[in-house]
């Protein structure tokens, strides 16, 4: 049920994203990519929390936006300072993404078996 809804939401978002006439300038593509990664992590975290029945609406929504903005901001500051700070965001969110995916997978498998 939750995953279905998430998938439809994602589908709707993709449809909108592919059809809006605004095209992001090349300069901001980097920030957008890191923000998208952070958002992806937040969504998987939300799914995991929902499966574990620990889901908190406020934490999820604020986490989603603050993570995305923080990641983009970090990348921007890194650019200004000449440090590839976005790598930190990529690594952190990537690790958490895989952890969340693993936990979700286990929960699904457990539910299937039982």
């Amino acid at each position: 049920m939750g995953i279905m809804l998430t998938a439809t939401g994602l589908l709707i978002g993709l449809l909108i994203g592919f059809n809006i006439p605004v095209i992001l300038p090349q300069d901001y593509a980097k920030y957008m990519s890191v923000a998208a990664l952070a958002a992806l992590d937040s969504v998987f975290g939300g799914i995991r929390a929902a499966i574990e029945d620990k889901f908190d609406h406020g934490i999820f929504v604020t986490g989603f936006f603050s993570n995305a903005l923080l990641a983009a901001g970090l990348t921007y500051i890194g650019d200004r300072l000449g440090i590839d700070l976005y790598l930190a965001a990529v690594v952190a969110f990537g690790v958490r993404l895989f952890q969340n995916l693993a936990i979700i997978r286990r929960h699904i498998l457990k539910n299937k078996i039982t």
Partner: peptide, 26 residues
């Protein structure tokens, strides 16, 4: 409400991914 908020967030994520995809593809 939880699922609706997840759906909304997923939609926003979808928009971000699609925009990013288009930029990289262009």
């Amino acid at each position: 409400t939880v699922y609706i908020s997840i759906m909304l967030v997923a939609a926003i994520l979808g928009i971000m991914l699609a925009v990013q995809f288009r930029v990289v593809n262009r």
